[in-house]
């Protein structure tokens, strides 16, 4: 009894939501957004898909397993924390920054906090997928 409207909506919303979630993640450092909300949005994309097509199909669709996402998320966060310790001898969780000059004065700043935020993003998304899919499979 799955609704066709939901299926079509989910099919088209999923890439939209995923890209939106990535945008939220990347711009989060300077504007509203961030890893938590980005991760929630990415997870929601799959939850929506799962509601429309069922858990099994969603699992097939995912290229990575939710557990892997959770693990990667923790790993990213941890590595970003240790980076400063390993590279510059600073304290744990101290941010370090690389400046990538793009054009003239404008430089794209890349730092360990972004890595950390990506970890948060992956973990939250993975958690949502794991939880929601498990519950859906209860049938």
């Amino acid at each position: 009894m799955r609704s066709e409207i939901l299926k079509i909506a989910a099919l088209h919303l999923k890439p939209l939501l995923l890209s939106l979630s990535l945008i939220l993640l990347i711009r989060g450092h300077n504007e509203p957004g961030g890893g938590f909300v980005g991760g929630l949005m990415a997870g929601t994309a799959y939850v929506l898909y799962g509601m429309a097509f069922g858990a099994e199909k969603t699992r097939q669709l995912c290229m990575v397993k939710p557990f892997l996402l959770i693990g990667l998320g923790l790993l990213f966060a941890l590595v970003s924390g240790l980076l400063a310790l390993l590279l510059t001898g600073g304290a744990i969780m101290e941010g370090i920054w690389f400046s990538i000059p793009v054009y003239g004065d404008f430089a794209f700043k890349l730092g360990s906090p972004l890595l950390f935020d990506s970890g948060v993003y992956l973990l939250v998304a993975g958690m949502l997928m794991l939880v929601m899919l498990s519950i859906m499979e209860e049938g």
Partner: peptide, 15 residues
């Protein structure tokens, strides 16, 4: 290097 102070607290100051 972040303008979103809340996010900076989350991912940097209080990471």
């Amino acid at each position: 290097h972040g303008k979103n102070i809340v996010n900076v607290i989350l991912v940097d100051f209080r990471a």
